[in-house]
Amino acid sequence: KELVLVLYDYQEKSPRELTVKKGDILTLLNSTNKDWWKIEVNGRQGFVPAAYLKKL
């Protein structure tokens, strides 16, 4: 499993997105899109802007 660090808080703006908090370490599911990465948070899957995340 690949992990990502959340660099900035992000509030979901659609049902396909997820809310994340700065400092969270989460599972990366897909990073093929350069702008939006798919991650998992508490069993939910969704997208967060790639600029808000850093691969560990």
Rank of each mutant, 00 (worst) to 15 (best):
K1T: 12
K1E: 11
K1D: 14
K1Q: 14
K1G: 15
K1L: 13
E2F: 13
E2H: 12
E2K: 09
E2T: 14
V4Q: 00
V4S: 01
V4I: 07
L5F: 08
L5Y: 09
L5K: 07
V6M: 03
V6R: 00
L7A: 03
Y8K: 11
Y10N: 01
Y10F: 06
Y10P: 01
Q11E: 13
Q11N: 11
Q11D: 11
Q11H: 12
E12T: 12
E12P: 13
K13T: 13
K13Q: 14
S14H: 12
S14D: 12
P15Q: 10
P15T: 09
P15D: 15
R16E: 12
R16P: 07
R16T: 13
R16H: 12
E17W: 05
E17L: 04
E17Q: 14
L18H: 05
L18F: 13
L18G: 03
L18P: 01
L18M: 15
T19C: 05
T19E: 05
T19V: 06
V20K: 00
V20A: 03
K21Y: 11
K21G: 06
K21M: 11
K21W: 10
K22L: 05
K22Q: 10
K22E: 09
K22P: 03
G23Q: 02
G23L: 02
G23I: 00
D24T: 11
I25N: 02
I25E: 03
I25D: 00
L26I: 12
L26M: 10
T27M: 11
T27L: 14
L29H: 07
N30R: 06
N30T: 09
N30P: 04
N30Y: 08
N30H: 10
S31Y: 09
S31H: 14
S31Q: 11
T32F: 12
T32D: 14
T32I: 10
N33W: 09
N33G: 11
N33I: 06
N33T: 07
K34D: 15
K34Y: 09
K34G: 12
K34Q: 12
K34C: 08
K34R: 09
D35T: 10
D35G: 11
D35H: 13
W36V: 04
W36Y: 11
W36C: 06
W37S: 02
W37E: 00
K38L: 12
K38V: 15
I39H: 00
I39T: 08
I39D: 00
E40R: 05
V41G: 14
N42G: 12
N42D: 15
N42M: 10
G43F: 06
G43M: 07
G43I: 02
G43N: 11
R44E: 12
R44S: 10
Q45S: 11
Q45H: 15
Q45G: 12
Q45A: 12
G46P: 01
F47W: 15
F47R: 04
F47T: 03
V48K: 00
V48G: 01
V48I: 07
V48W: 01
V48R: 00
P49W: 03
P49M: 03
A50I: 04
A50H: 04
A51V: 11
A51P: 12
A51Q: 13
Y52D: 02
Y52V: 15
Y52F: 14
L53Q: 01
L53C: 06
L53A: 01
K54F: 09
K54D: 07
K54C: 08
K55M: 14
K55L: 14
L56I: 15
L56T: 06
